[in-house]
């Protein structure tokens, strides 16, 4: 299980684009927690990976125009395995 944390801009379709990108890249959304923030939305996502590399997903999500910050943790690991450049 992966824990993906995102900050996204308040733009039309931003949430849909992010969630869709995750699913289309072969990951399954297990839980989605959103809260409004001054910049738009903060998201905490639990994702089932099925063997695909988490770092690649992170970069695929981080390149979306509405994504301001992205980081990913592997649950039960000692700490963050990757953090996308902002």
């Amino acid at each position: 299980m992966l824990e993906l944390s995102l900050a996204i801009r308040d733009v039309e379709g931003g949430l849909l684009r992010v969630l869709g990108a995750i699913e289309r890249r072969g990951f399954r959304l297990a839980a989605v927690n959103t809260r409004t923030a001054p910049h738009g939305l903060d998201l905490d996502l639990s994702i089932e990976a099925d063997g695909r590399p988490a770092e690649v997903l992170l970069r695929q999500v981080a390149r979306l125009h509405e994504v301001m910050r992205a980081s990913i943790d592997v649950v039960r690991s000692r700490g963050p395995v990757a953090r996308a450049p902002t």
Partner: peptide, 16 residues
């Protein structure tokens, strides 16, 4: 149109 093209564009807008 925005939804249909969501997976095949780098970015998209609805001009409101």
């Amino acid at each position: 149109t925005f939804g249909i093209t969501l997976p095949i564009v780098k970015h998209s807008y609805v001009l409101r």
